[in-house]
Design a protein around this nucleic acid. Structure first.
Length: 123
DNA sequence: TTTCTTACA
DNA sequence: TGTAAGAA
C-alpha cells in the first residue's frame, strides 16, 4: 500500500509518516517511481510507534527499540537484544525524574491554590 | 489523483 | 506538523 493508504489505516498523517521514516522508525520499500510502498507489517509498526511515543520514549530511542521487538498480532513481544534491558531501565529512570519534577510543580500549585481559597474563597 | 522533495508560516 | 510549490 502507498502512504495515503497507511495514513488512512493508522490515522497518522502522511507528513508524520515521512517524519517517522526520517527518524529511522519506518523502512518502506521504494518503488521505481519513488513512491514508498508499505505492507501490513508497517501498520502494526506504526501502532507500536504510537504506543511507545505515548509511553514517553523519544523517537531516537524507539528507533533502536523497534529492532528488539516483534509483533504477535497486537502486542509488542521483546526478542533477544543486547542492551535492551539496560536501555529500558535507563529510560524508566528518565521518566522517574520527569514525574518528580511534575510532582514538585503540582505541589507549588496546590500550595498557591490552597492559599487563594483560604483568603478569597471560591469563584 | 497521488506522491515526492524542499522550505517556510 | 501543516501547507505550498513544481515535477512526475
Amino acid at each position: 500500500m502507498r502512504i495515503g493508504d497507511l495514513a488512512q489505516e493508522t490515522g497518522v498523517s502522511r507528513r508524520l509518516l515521512r517524519y517517522y521514516e526520517e527518524q529511522g522508525l519506518l523502512r518502506p520499500v521504494r518503488q521505481a517511481n519513488g513512491y514508498r510502498e508499505y505492507t501490513a507489517a508497517h501498520v502494526a509498526v506504526v501502532r507500536h510507534i504510537r504506543t511507545l511515543l505515548a509511553a514517553g520514549l523519544p523517537t531516537a530511542v524507539i528507533g533502536g527499540l523497534l529492532h528488539c521487538v516483534h509483533d504477535d498480532g497486537d502486542r509488542l513481544v521483546p526478542s533477544p537484544c543486547p542492551g535492551m534491558i539496560a536501555g529500558l531501565r535507563r529510560e524508566r529512570g528518565r521518566l522517574t525524574e520527569t514525574i518528580t519534577r511534575l510532582q514538585a510543580s503540582q505541589d507549588v500549585l496546590d500550595t498557591l491554590l490552597a492559599a487563594a481559597i483560604r483568603e478569597h474563597g471560591d469563584l
